[in-house]
């Protein structure tokens, strides 16, 4: 053996193993208790797992999540920039928006948008004090419950995401803005090409959380009768009275969706991590990943 090579026995981590075994054990017991309960009919679970109504609901859940999240993210960037702008009016408007939508329950907001038709039976979009009208009609027709649900989720999420985006922008060194300006770049261009791509590193991990919260929050749209997964499950169980079984079916699909949807997060983190030696720093700090030891 060359004495320049370091061949060391890796450090043992007994507590990692003990805690791992404990967690798996508790989980197994829980699943077993559910499975062996005489009041849970496994047949119904299996029967409804791939029921078309359930699958349709799951698809709609994904669609609502993605659309709401897209709208929320765009709004969040606008709100964050408004809050960071030197203009006091823009700042105030953004703060008020964020304060309002974070300060009231999401359920309340969903019901509000769902009942918009009761508050304003007709909607008119036009130029005030003139006869020019672009759109006019029944509120319930113009804003169906699906749209109301997406608006509610998106506006609420925008308020939370705005703070995440703002923190991301603030994390970028001030010298970057300066360098961009000195090269003749304008504000919008600098934000798009220089600041946001760097802010992404800080933005993506908490936004991944928000994405998963959003996916689960779609279940709240049951109160305005949007036919997403949870609504479908409750509609079925209202007829066959197999409440627990259908909750298990819905829960299974929620788990599948949250798991699958967190895969793109890793890709995004990799994309926006380029140029920053994050992986190396993390490996050093926590001792994960392969270690290469050379003399």
């Amino acid at each position: 053996m060359n004495e320049d090579d370091v061949v060391a026995k890796p450090l043992r981590h007994p507590w990692r193993w003990i805690s791992g075994v404990l967690v798996v054990g508790v989980l197994a017991l829980f699943i077993y208790s559910l499975w062996s309960s005489p009041s849970v009919d496994h047949g119904i679970i299996v029967q409804y797992l791939f029921n078309p109504q359930i699958l349709n609901g799951a698809v709609l859940t994904v669609v609502i999540t993605v659309v709401s999240m897209l709208i929320a993210t765009i709004l969040a960037v606008i709100l964050a920039v408004m809050k960071l702008s030197p203009n006091p009016l823009l700042k105030l408007v953004a703060s008020a928006f964020i304060g309002f939508f974070r300060g009231t329950p999401l359920l309340l907001q969903i019901v509000f948008w769902g009942y918009l038709g009761i508050i304003y039976p007709t909607l008119t979009l036009g130029i005030p004090f003139t006869n020019i009208v672009f759109i006019h009609g029944q509120t319930s027709a113009l804003v169906p419950s699906l749209a109301a649900g997406i608006i509610a989720l998106a506006l609420n999420e925008a308020a939370y995401s705005a703070e995440i985006v703002r923190a991301g922008i603030l994390s970028v060194d001030g010298g970057q803005m300066e360098a961009a300006s000195s090269l003749g770049m304008r504000g919008g261009y600098t934000l798009r090409r220089i600041i946001l791509p760097q802010a992404m590193r800080v933005i993506i991990p908490p936004m991944g959380n928000e994405f998963i919260s959003m996916l689960k929050n779609t279940a709240l749209l049951e109160v305005v009768a949007v036919l997403e997964l949870y609504t479908q499950a409750t509609m079925i169980s209202a007829q066959n009275l197999a409440q627990v079984e259908l909750l298990v079916v819905a829960g299974f699909w929620y788990l599948v969706m949250t798991t699958v949807l967190s895969i793109p997060q890793r890709q995004l983190e990799k994309k926006y991590g380029r140029g920053f030696n994050v992986a190396t720093a993390r490996n050093r700090m926590f001792g994960f990943g392969k270690k290469k030891v050379s003399a």
């Binding site: 060194d173 010298g175 970057q176 300066e178 360098a179 961009a180 300006s181 000195s182 090269l183 003749g184 220089i194 791509p197 760097q198 926006y272 380029r274 140029g275 920053f276």
Partner: peptide, 16 residues
């Protein structure tokens, strides 16, 4: 500003 180049003490390269 396009006609004026500037070089900074702390480089300020775009890290990404």
């Amino acid at each position: 500003r396009r006609h004026i180049g500037m070089v900074f003490q702390r480089f300020n390269l775009f890290p990404h």
